[in-house]
Simulated scan of single mutants.
Amino acid sequence: MPAHHHPRPVRRHLVGAVVLGSAALLAVSGCTNNTPAPAPAPAQSSGAGAGSGSSNDAAGQKVTIGFSAPAADHGWIASITDQAKATATANSDIDLKVAAGTNDVNQQISQVETFINDKVDAIVILPFDGAALTTVAKKAMDAGIPVVNVDREFSDPNAARVTVLGDNYGMGVSAGQYICDQLQGKSDAVVAEIAGIDSLPLTQDRSKGFKDALAKCGQDVDNRVAADFTVEGGEKATSNLLQAAPKIDAIWNHDDDQGVGVLAAIKNANRSEFFMVGGAGSANAMREIQSGNGVLKATVIYPSTQGADGVKLARLLVQKKGLSDIQEVEVPRKVQLYAPVVTKDNVDQYLGTAFES
């Protein structure tokens, strides 16, 4: 399942003046010489701009980062914290202080308060409730501690310096496009959807993306049920769906954790006339895709690397570096990760960072 800004001093470089001066000299020489003047080289900066020569991967200033996320009661959430820890271990200049996972909003607020009192260098947080954690995140920002907001967005953009997001709408689009490609214009196709929790904006975004993508190839959602991101919920909702729809050509299931129950219900009903696309990208779903033996033929990624990405971005913020493969000298304000489709053809590329359901 699933997501802010305190001004900090902008680094000023004398190199800008040098480049302007060089450009002026080149303009003069261009008036007196028939040979075209070469373009001035782009300005270089530490850890930003031209990627060759970047030192972002080399150990730098020691950075203490506070990390807080919900309780690991879901494979995707568990992976968020596990991958954040693994990233810290792999970088000797990161000291990651991991708070106990909690679904208690007040406890998570207290964790952030503790990080502020301990004067950590940065905080990475996947809030259980983005709106509820906004005030304390803003307090951290006001204390000069950059906050990286993961997945569930705060209600005030000034409560974080960077926000790392998956792409819920994009998941729906990717799933819909894949199904369109597989149906190849079949006019009487029956497409079904097994959503997550309908009251959540993320579920609504996924469903909208799916509907929009299907519309472009003349398809629509013929049967739809909602589960609750659990194995039990997935099995129950799918049983209801299969009873209501005696014939189906394609199914998109929003979440691979609930997908364990979805596949169990399909097996119990002895149905196999359709193909299925999963969601989020669990390792067990990818292994099922890899086998090629069942109805699950693809899954759409909702990266569980978001916490790890947040930790790496927090490290760069504190060390006053940018992203080495872009010219901008600062870390971007928002990073939204892509929602690729994983099939048997490319599963090996994604299995290494997949979470276990």
Rank of each mutant, 00 (worst) to 15 (best):
L351Q: 09
L183S: 02
Q290W: 01
P332G: 01
V10E: 11
M141Q: 15
K216S: 13
V295R: 02
K247N: 12
E193R: 09
T32L: 14
I194T: 06
E328L: 06
A59T: 14
V190P: 00
A269Y: 12
E153C: 14
V18I: 12
S92R: 15
G261W: 06
Q44V: 09
D212T: 08
V331H: 01
F67S: 04
N56V: 12
H5E: 15
Q204S: 14
K97H: 07
V342H: 01
L133C: 00
T238A: 11
A160S: 15
N268G: 11
W76I: 06
G49Q: 10
E328A: 13
T203D: 14
Q177F: 01
L317D: 00
T114W: 04
V335Q: 05
D129Y: 03
G310C: 00
G51R: 08
Q336Y: 01
V341T: 10
V329T: 08
A175W: 05
D121N: 15
G259D: 01
H4S: 12
F275E: 09
Q327G: 05
A137E: 12
G47C: 07
S272Y: 05
G172P: 01
L126E: 13
N56H: 07
L183T: 04
S79A: 14
G259N: 06
G259E: 01
M1L: 11
N103H: 08
A269S: 15
V300L: 01
N158F: 13
A244S: 13
A215T: 12
A24N: 04
N168T: 10
A23F: 10
K297S: 06
Q290M: 08
G49C: 08
F275C: 07
L323D: 01
A215I: 12
L316P: 00
V124D: 09
I125G: 03
N293E: 11
S187Y: 07
F274M: 13
L202W: 02
A175T: 04
V28C: 02
S272L: 02
A227K: 03
L26C: 07
K208T: 14
N240V: 07
K321I: 00
N268F: 05
S207Q: 14
A245K: 11
R11K: 13
C31T: 15
G310I: 03
D228A: 02
V63N: 08
V173Y: 06
E153P: 09
L323V: 08
V190Q: 12
R315Y: 04
F115T: 09
Q111Y: 11
M276P: 02
N270T: 14
N33G: 03
R161S: 15
A37Y: 01
D348W: 01
G49T: 10
S54G: 14
V191P: 02
A226S: 13
A339K: 01
K139D: 11
